[in-house]
Design a protein around this nucleic acid. Sequence first.
DNA 1: ACCCAGGGTCATA
DNA 2: TATGACCATGGG
Length: 224
Amino acid sequence: MSAGTALKLRKSDLLKVYRQLLKAYGCQHWWPADSPFEVMVGAILTQNTAWPNVEKAIANLKQAQLLSPETVASASHDQVAELIRPSGYFNIKAQRLQAFCRFLLARGGERMLRQEDTGTLRHDLLAVHGVGPETADDMLLYAFERPVFVIDAYTRRIFSRLGMIVGGESYEALRRGFEVALGPDVQLFNEYHALIVRHAKEACSKKPRCAECCLAGGCEEGGR
DNA sequence: ACCCAGGGTCATA
DNA sequence: TATGACCATGGG
């Protein structure tokens, strides 16, 4: 629902930050995956987990020929769990992965879901056990190519450090804030979030605050 | 030997 | 509504 006071973000400010990031890092070509289904799997596996661990898990699934909704859904819990072990939380995530694949199959597959409007699709994704706001939005933006702005811990840290948000806003408030300010733009949202992650991961992760940050307002800090 | 990572769910107050 | 516990591996 709408928060009492809608988050006020200026388009010019957001675009300024975007240009700084783009200039510093260049085009990121996200999401790192070979197919939309792989994007969705990655979105679940990367929950609170470092990406290199997810890559190992996905490689295991590929090697076992388990990178399709049908095969994941029909495999045993233990087999899936064992394959995705490197991504952490493997019991929970095996359950989530299989629940999601069952959902895909029950809906007639990815092709059918593509025909839903964005609002309906988002609602349906969120109804799957283990798919929360960020996971759903990763899927919507990077697998379904819908103009949904993804909010994650990095987004909160960077923009609160820049003084553009407080940081404690609800997920929905932030998402709507960015979407309203920028206007629907799949390519922009895609690149923007990719750049945010790139910056957060590699920029000033070792210093509390980076003086030569590519963002003029100052960098995020490493800790939580 | 810590700290933390591209979250989400569930139980309590 | 809002915290806290829990899930678990691997890199710094």
